[in-house]
Computed example of a mutant assay.
Amino acid sequence: MPQKPDLPAPKPRSERVGFALVGLGKLTAEQLIPAVRTSQDAYVAALVSSEEDKGEEFARAFDLTEQDVYTYDTFEQLADRDDVQAVYIVLPNSKHLEFVRRAAQMGKHVLCEKPLSVNAGQARQIVDACREAGVLLMTAYRCQYTPEHWAAREAVQSGALGRVKLLDSIHAQVEDDPEAWRLKRALAGGGPLLDVGIYSLNTMQFVTGQEPEWVFAAQHQPAGDLRFREVEESVSAMLGFPGGVIANLQTSYGAYNTATLRVMGEDGSLLMDPAFPYGGLGLEITDQNGTRQPAFPEYNQFSLEFDHFAQCIQQGRAPWTPGEEGVQDHVIMDAIYESARTGQVVRLSPQTGTDLYRGTPPERPGQ
């Protein structure tokens, strides 16, 4: 379990936002619950699991009672819990729409794991459900809350690298278990692009503040490999951003663990290696002043994410990574799959401006 960062003591519970965690898998057990213990503005008030026994086991381990445990069938009973103001949906992608709708109908704000859904159409339904219910919706793009990623963004957008020309990002890992839900199209909606490649895509948009204008892609689904009967093994995509900026994205479930982001400008470059794990991020910036590796205060990525959404709920502000950004990423990923299928360039709707789908910037550690 991750070490607890040396952070100030959380606020009194009465001043924090209570969350129900929906889905008790590895991410919840190993990252989310420990992270909430370092959160300043959030706490876990309830757990929702497919198995009541599993939920009660989690409750005993994390200082909750059996009365704080709900199943998918009793989920609506959370409507009576005034101390549960928000839910965090941590379920397979295809289940997001159902549970976001159910949460929104109870008047609960929603933090939803990425990708927001399985395609742009269902993602739009998620946004509509929350808008109609008058609740906030945030897509859990944790990398947009780290100081390393913000330093990379500032290096790009300040002009320190000169005019940006090229971006390159690889996010790959080996998925060994043929029965993993991520390899089931009905649950995941696709392969590595929706799961890990989305970090490359979303971070390139984040550091530039812009959206791609076209995509051209290819994918590979090896014959005879039981893991890839339903989803692709690898995807490679070229994306064209405004001003002639070209980006390359590569993602795979069959290649050695790699998580990098490189940005190359006329006067400098930056490298994040690794760029996307839960901790230990690396950042090296080279510009006309030389090469440096910035240092940052200790933090927990998920705590920053919890805190931002809790603050948005308390202050009535739009989250930095709202549901609309999740929809836009699905629009781009749908286009990548279409290009891979047809072998043609797919053009996207023209976008004008920067950070078009983002809300209120988050507070940042050390500032």
Rank of each mutant, 00 (worst) to 15 (best):
G25H: 05
A29Y: 03
R81V: 10
G279N: 14
E30C: 06
G25W: 04
P10V: 10
A104S: 09
L27W: 00
Y141D: 09
R81H: 04
A295N: 13
T251Q: 10
G279W: 14
A172V: 10
V345Y: 05
A295H: 13
P365F: 10
I126W: 05
H330V: 07
L21W: 02
V48E: 00
W320A: 07
K184G: 07
A140E: 02
P242K: 03
V331G: 00
Q31P: 07
V90R: 00
S269C: 13
R182Q: 15
D176E: 14
R102D: 08
G366C: 11
C130R: 05
Q67E: 15
E233A: 14
A59R: 04
A20L: 06
P8L: 01
P322L: 08
T65D: 05
T71G: 14
Q125E: 15
V263R: 00
L136G: 12
L348N: 12
R185C: 03
G189N: 03
N248P: 01
E52Y: 04
W214F: 14
E15R: 10
A29C: 01
G107V: 02
P34I: 11
F296H: 06
D53S: 10
T146Y: 00
L161C: 03
A20H: 02
S39V: 08
D6I: 05
A188W: 01
N119Q: 02
R317P: 01
R13Y: 01
A59W: 10
V22M: 02
P222A: 08
P274R: 13
E363D: 14
G134M: 05
K114L: 09
L348P: 15
L64T: 01
V69H: 03
R341P: 06
Q105C: 05
I170V: 15
G279R: 15
P322G: 08
R182C: 13
L27G: 01
D287G: 00
P115N: 12
R13I: 11
Q344T: 14
Q122R: 13
L201H: 08
E230M: 09
Q315F: 00
P361W: 10
V90A: 09
L193Y: 08
A151H: 09
Q85F: 02
A104K: 09
A46I: 04
V345W: 09
P10Y: 05
E66G: 04
P92Y: 11
G316T: 01
E363M: 09
S252G: 12
R185H: 11
G107Y: 00
E230Y: 13
D177G: 10
R142T: 15
C143E: 14
A86T: 02
A46D: 03
D334G: 07
I33H: 08
L183A: 05
A61T: 08
F309S: 12
P178M: 07
E132S: 04
R102I: 08
L194F: 14
T291R: 00
V156C: 11
Q40T: 13
I198P: 07
L249G: 11
A217V: 03
G162Y: 03
F276R: 02
E305R: 08
A180E: 12
V164H: 04
E338A: 11
V44D: 06
S339C: 02
A79E: 01
L111G: 06
L91T: 14
M272G: 11
